[in-house]
């Protein structure tokens, strides 16, 4: 079983569209959406939720006003400015470090564990799908990503799947690191812009930092062919294989509006053929 994670550094370059295409093309796989705070893959896969569980992670301080004598020690110690002048805790600012609860001489502070999101295991026409929804304003997205991946791997092992295909999130921080550590390949989708190249460079360096093999796709390459060449040169000098280039195509948006993967919506289009070719390369190069 191989784990493929789709990343980009820069947002909006086409991660979910590509993952959706692979959902249509790959056989015997488990799909996972690790972009837990702005998840979109479900809009293409139309999951039927089979299992739902609370995401429990971290705690928040709660001050019992009856026990509190307003000595102010907690406010003094809290480095996250989470306790107000009237001794209420701002749950968004609270990092759940327990410092205040451990230090309070009145023992007026308890740490409470509340669900911070939900995790789902679903059935889709493309196969099993693990996804999640981080609660509004919650942190610890990295931990939720790890749980989603773990669940997808469990299912994959049970079903003897060939692939775990993961839709990642933009950026290079906590949730991205959680989604790529130990994966067999990080597939980077970029676009031929200065920002695209700058951000691809940072995500590629991050993947190398964690020893994850990298491959790359250039999306909308024809919007600036010169910049596309630059990205290809960059890849050549960094020993990264460019699996393919996709032309800008308004059909992609139409497919999305219709809630379909591009392969379902326009199977014979140029972009679908290009994605098919990319998927075949992934099969031969990784599996």
């Amino acid at each position: 079983m191989k784990e493929l994670v789709i990343l980009s550094g820069k947002g909006g370059t086409g991660k979910t569209i590509t993952t959706g295409a692979f959902a249509s093309l790959a056989k015997n796989k488990v799909l996972a959406d690790c972009d837990v705070d702005a998840a979109d893959l479900h809009l293409l896969l139309k999951p039927e939720i089979k299992e739902e569980s609370d995401f429990l992670s971290g705690t928040e301080a709660v001050i019992d006003k009856n026990l509190c004598n307003e000595c102010g020690l907690c406010r003094e110690l809290c480095r996250f400015d989470a306790i107000s002048e009237d001794f209420t805790v701002n749950p968004i600012a609270c990092e759940g470090c327990d410092f205040c609860a451990n230090a309070c001489p009145q023992k007026a502070i308890t740490m409470q564990r509340n669900p911070k999101g939900k995790q789902f295991v679903s059935e889709t026409k493309f196969g099993p799908f693990v996804h999640a929804k981080l609660g509004i304003g919650e942190d610890n997205s990295g931990k939720l990503v790890s749980q989603v991946r773990k669940k997808a791997n469990e299912i994959g092992k049970k079903l003897k799947s060939d692939w775990i295909i993961i839709d990642g999130s933009p950026g290079i921080g906590c949730p991205v690191i959680a989604s790529m550590g130990g994966a067999d390949c990080a597939l980077i989708i970029t676009e031929p812009t200065m920002s695209g190249l700058h951000d691809a460079d940072r995500i590629i360096k991050t993947a190398k930092h964690f020893n994850v093999p990298v491959k790359l796709i250039i999306n909308k390459y024809d919007l600036n062919p010169e910049m596309s060449d630059k990205i290809e040169d960059y890849c050549k000098s960094n020993d990264i294989s460019v699996l393919g280039k996709l032309a800008f195509d308004k059909t992609v948006v139409e497919a999305m509006v219709n809630g379909k993967t591009i392969i379902e919506y326009a199977p014979e289009s140029e972009i679908s053929n290009a994605l098919r070719e990319i998927w075949n390369k992934i099969n031969t190069e990784i599996l």
Binding site: G11, D37, S141, P170, G171, G173, P175
Partner: peptide, 24 residues
């Protein structure tokens, strides 16, 4: 991008937030 801790840290204490979206 996103809606988790980084985004919250960035927008907290703004007088106004402009949300840029695309109609998809």
């Amino acid at each position: 991008p996103g809606t988790s801790c980084s985004m919250i840290e960035a927008v907290t204490a703004s007088d106004f937030c402009v949300l840029v979206t695309e109609p998809t």
